[in-house]
Design a protein around this nucleic acid. Sequence first.
DNA 1: CCAGCATATGCAGCAAGGGGTATATGCCGG
DNA 2: CCGGCATATACCCCTTGCTGCATATGCTGG
Lengths: 122, 122
Amino acid sequence: MQVIQIYKCMCDALRLRILNVLQDGPLCVCHLMEIFDCEQVKMSKQLRYMKELGMVVGERQAQWIVYRLADSCDPLLAENLKCLQDCAGEELCFAEDRNKRAEIIARLREEPCGCPTAVISE
Amino acid sequence: MQVIQIYKCMCDALRLRILNVLQDGPLCVCHLMEIFDCEQVKMSKQLRYMKELGMVVGERQAQWIVYRLADSCDPLLAENLKCLQDCAGEELCFAEDRNKRAEIIARLREEPCGCPTAVISE
DNA sequence: CCAGCATATGCAGCAAGGGGTATATGCCGG
DNA sequence: CCGGCATATACCCCTTGCTGCATATGCTGG
């Protein structure tokens, strides 16, 4: 039941925020950790969960693993992600997360660290 | 965090189906049980959970309790419920549930059972 | 082959969710 | 006040999810 999977993925704050930033492009784990100030284990496990639900895919690039939204991104999911921006008044700052992502990408262009995030997000 | 509550409510198949039929109007517990062929305890517990999440409200009418979507039905929820109709291809038959509801309402008009469902859904 | 970085996995503990059985509550009609 | 209907609650058990700690894996550069 695909629909349920989607809601299962979105019913946790961190997962929802992850989906939100991945809208703007792929990210490797280290930068997801940075954006959400999140421990490695925690991030890794949430990503695994989301992968099992079929919402994201991870692709190895050298020592990094780059995550992005699954290709067959359901229109229902896409629609909901679009709506997140309107929830600015709430506790979770989806717009802020996306800004943080943009800052990281900008920084990586200045001082590349080898991680493929910046290249991919061209 | 309102958004998360919404997704928490929708991430279970039965709850999602309940929300779906309540779109068409209030129902008392006995008819919800009939539509989903569901035990009383199970139904009662899911309704309680949904009430705690603020998604539905229950109002006593004589010996029955009539449930409906909460007044402050978030636009995000409304949008998602609308989309359910498009998921007809999937396992869960949202349209079928709504038909079942319509049948019950029709039957109650013929042979009222005292329960307020039919009256309310005028 | 080794050291180091990025990421994943195994295990254990704990909270939340979901199901079932039994029982309680609230309302009604007599 | 009693019996019966509609619904809720308490209690128990099982499964799932989340967290943290420790450790493993996969890749790279030397």
